[in-house]
């Protein structure tokens, strides 16, 4: 197979996978929030509430968060 053909196959397959992954990701994002499993919008607070002594949205060392994952 020539490099030309290879790159075309690579491109078609790669784009196909990307489109599928991307759209299922959109569906996943909105569904999981609708079901109440996740709350993504709380992360928007990171920029608003950014004093060094304010409570993080999720703490790095907090074991409770690990269980949530």
């Amino acid at each position: 197979m020539s490099m030309d053909q290879l790159s075309i196959y690579l491109y078609v397959i790669g784009s196909g996978i990307t489109v599928v992954v991307f759209y299922s990701y959109i569906v996943y994002l909105y569904r999981s929030e609708k079901r109440g499993e996740k709350d993504y919008e709380k992360y928007g607070r990171i920029a608003i509430d950014d004093e060094i002594d304010s409570t993080p949205v999720e703490t790095v060392s907090d074991p409770a968060n690990k269980n949530k994952e």
Partner: peptide
């Protein structure tokens, strides 16, 4: 802008999910 506009206005970013989508879309 994702940091300074929310911080200056006191409004959290409109949609965190949309920012996720546009980030990966832009990268690709």
């Amino acid at each position: 802008i994702y940091y300074y506009l929310p911080k200056e206005s006191g409004q959290a970013v409109y949609s965190y999910k949309l920012s996720l989508l546009s980030f990966w879309g832009l990268m690709f």
